[in-house]
Design a protein around this nucleic acid. Structure first.
Lengths: 212, 212
DNA sequence: GATGCATCGTGAATTCTGGCACAAGACTGT
DNA sequence: ACAGTCTTGTGCCAGAATTCACGATGCATC
């Protein structure tokens, strides 16, 4: 039975909400409670989860810890995934220093840049390596995921190198679409896309006659 | 006629791709070319655009510049939107220094933090202000959009203050869902959500017996 | 100007998605 | 024990979203 992509996309949201409940000491929840917190219908949550098994109990709801474990298993984030960061600019450094990966199944293992002035610097405990070494270092470390934080003009080339090095998933922060072979996962993060999606629903700004 | 959200969500992607074509000097494109570049069917692109008018010409395709202008108008990013950043940690600073907003319809106008050690620092040409002044400063500047880059534990409170200050759209980088009044737009950026969405489709990692 | 090819916009057909509503089960309190 | 209240998992179906396929049109070439 094939799981719809759109369902898969919601699972990390559920996991995040459940982990939050767990962290505040709540042991049981319901599809209604989760739905209210997430702005999703309870029926949707139940149906999504039902693709993978029966995790709840009638009349009671879901055991938070048990459901967290199940979602971690389903999403395969039980053991840590190693990640490489390409690009040691402001964003790459922020990612390298971010401590929100560790407890959610991911671990930064390497960071690369092509600028000689950045190579050798240390960020988040990792020495910036020469981007030309991606093809050697990634297979050595068995890294299969990468975050791309380079200028748009370089993103496709970087992606090509990553794929050649065996990377199977790319999280692309560069504001450009990239093409990869079938079987390689790509996800995009572009704040402007989200901002523009919001402004569609708002009244257009009136240019300030003073500041321009 | 109501435009489906899912269509609105694709428009910024189209705009980004078209702007790229424009930047490399291409003056004409087609739904097929765009579709190939974006991994979207050409019919989908044509139908999405048809919600807003007839922008192409049979046999020829679309004038890139014209379509860019139209999408900017539709998304209301013709004139610049002012944005506030809340949180001057690594991520907030990276956003403040990012120069990719300016030419896509947005302009950072203020940055806030609650940590006295950060207040007064300058990032991206903006002095970090006291987060307690959000309620005063935002209305003064007429800011209606904000990016939240604070720890998850603080995100809901910050969002409440932003909404009270008249903010109509929040781009939330904190890994937690927030509740806002109806009419306020919220978008989320959480790299881990994207990573987990990819790992679902990959083989689970085998823990390295040496490094753990 | 006629032919061949390319492309758009769109109605129809198909596939997908979400929500309703209910049977079944679980818990609480008397 | 039993009534009352919750909650899950799911069959069903309406509506949404996507794709198909085609008429209409534009351009290049001969």
């Amino acid at each position: 039975m094939e799981i719809p992509d759109i369902v898969v996309g919601r699972l990390p949201i559920y996991l995040r909400a459940l982990s939050h409940l767990e962290s505040i000491g709540q042991t049981v929840t319901s599809s209604h409670e989760m739905g209210n917190a997430l702005g999703i219908s309870s029926a949707q949550i139940r149906k999504d989860l039902s693709h993978f098994g029966e995790f709840g109990k009638q009349g009671t709801g879901y055991q938070v810890k048990y459901l967290v474990d199940q979602l971690r298993r389903i999403l395969k984030v039980g053991a840590d995934w190693d990640i490489a960061i390409v690009g040691a600019g402001d964003l790459g450094r922020a990612l390298a220093n971010y401590n929100g990966f560790a407890d959610r199944g991911f671990r930064i293992r390497a960071i690369f840049d092509s600028d000689p002035r950045r190579i050798g610097q240390t960020h988040g405990g990792h020495v910036v390596q020469d981007a030309r070494d991606i093809g050697r270092v990634l297979p050595e470390l068995g890294i299969r995921l990468a975050m791309v934080a380079v200028p748009a003009a370089a993103a496709q080339l970087v992606a090509d190198h990553l794929v050649a090095a065996g990377v199977q998933g790319i999280l692309n922060y560069a504001p450009i679409n990239i093409l990869v072979p079938e079987g390689v996962q790509v996800q995009y993060i572009d704040p402007v896309v989200h901002l523009q999606r919001m402004t569609f629903y708002l009244e257009a700004p009136t240019p300030n006659p003073v500041t321009g």
